[in-house]
Design a protein around this nucleic acid. Structure first.
Lengths: 213, 213
DNA sequence: AAAAAAATCAGGGATTACCCTGATTAGACA
DNA sequence: TGTCTAATCAGGGTAATCCCTGATTTTTTT
């Protein structure tokens, strides 16, 4: 008997998945949580074997949620659910202890396959993600790579831009000169292929680099 | 026997809802479409009584899709599915011929209630939306309203800004002067409470006003 | 028909972002 | 120990945004 729990802030998705899997007799849905704190509160008593975890949660993101979850339930298998097919996300999730990563356009069969895989101790990635990551692991340095990696400072500046701060305000906040901030912004523009800060924030939000609902 | 069809670009949501409703014996799921064109192509032969229609579609938005659908199937009841709890969206949907409006955090029971309601010829709105709309209909001018309604032109400008166009480019695109574009942008800034265009896009994306997955 | 809301445009100025070139320093890595 | 990357900073200029005041016309609503 497999015990399953779901964390997603859309109740429709929760009950949808629940209903979809209900007819599997060997499967028992023991939990259904709308956010991170609800998950942390109940997961110990519900004691699922597998958790379907949406990355975009209202209170925390799924990546940060992985570690405390595994501390609570060391044997828990986490299947990340997300819209982002950015490989850096996948890596982060897996690095934080998730055992699988599914896009929300997954099909029923794939979901079941994924659950079986993680329960058997394997990691599961959707084929499309798998090949993308393999391409990246080997030296395939595409000139227009799927996603350039941003440095710590660039991420800080990006986040500050998203908070509608001006160059001067960012400089004060990070204790650096405005010129340095401009350099970082220019590098961001070029790395992300944006024309201006608006594009920067758009891409960042689409890729989930900055806090969104 | 009720014939149901679903249009949503997330296959997980489609099959989730399908599975959720499958156990209802009086209900038959006759169609499952990923986008607008697929819907238009098949809906006549599938002939559903009710269509669950996601507003965010890759090719068109659900609002524009209503009219042609009703032309094809005059008796079709359309239940809009959306994340936006902006009342102007709701109004538009209903004005275009939809019969109900549900947020994606709906529960199973509510979904069933909604279907029964629209089939009985009534309109259905989620209670939270209903009260919000009533507040708006009466003079309840809240000083900090949930969301200011944006005009057609403002939305066009907003979308253009999101596409990283400059004021000049937007002016050319909309055949208006740069000064007019600036006025619209200023009004957007003040309506949405943003400090600059970056904030504009951030809020717009969070509220789902511009194209996102 | 009157009132309200939306869309249009302008002048003019202050601030900010954008973009180039060029350079130094600290830490990582081999 | 040299190479690379990240992070730091500057000068100087162009372009764009932001912000104010003020106004007319068109469309929608009442």
């Amino acid at each position: 008997m497999i015990r399953l729990a779901i964390t997603d802030d859309h109740s429709l998705i929760r009950s949808g998945i629940a209903a979809m899997l209900e007819e599997m007799p060997e499967l028992l849905i023991v939990g259904s949580y709308a956010n991170a704190s609800e998950t942390l509160e109940n997961i110990k008593k519900d004691a699922p074997d597998v958790l379907l975890l949406d990355i975009n949660l209202p209170d925390t993101n799924g990546i940060e949620l992985c570690k405390p979850l595994i501390r609570l339930l060391p044997d828990l298998k986490i299947l990340a659910l997300s819209n982002h097919e950015d490989t850096s996300f996948v890596k982060k999730m897996l690095a934080q202890g998730a055992h699988g990563y599914l896009l929300k356009n997954t099909h029923r069969l794939e979901l079941i396959t994924a659950m079986k895989a993680v329960l058997a101790g394997e990691d599961f990635l959707q084929p499309q993600l798998k090949s993308k990551m393999l391409d990246q692991l080997m030296g395939k340095k595409t000139r227009d790579p799927f996603f350039p990696k941003l440095t710590r400072r660039e991420l800080e500046v990006l986040s500050a831009i998203a908070q509608e701060l001006t160059t001067q305000e960012i400089a004060d906040k990070l204790f650096i000169s405005t010129k340095t901030v401009e350099t970082h912004r220019m590098n961001l523009l070029s790395k992300l292929g944006a024309k201006n800060s608006v594009g920067l924030i758009r891409i960042a939000m689409e890729k989930g680099l900055i806090g969104e609902g």
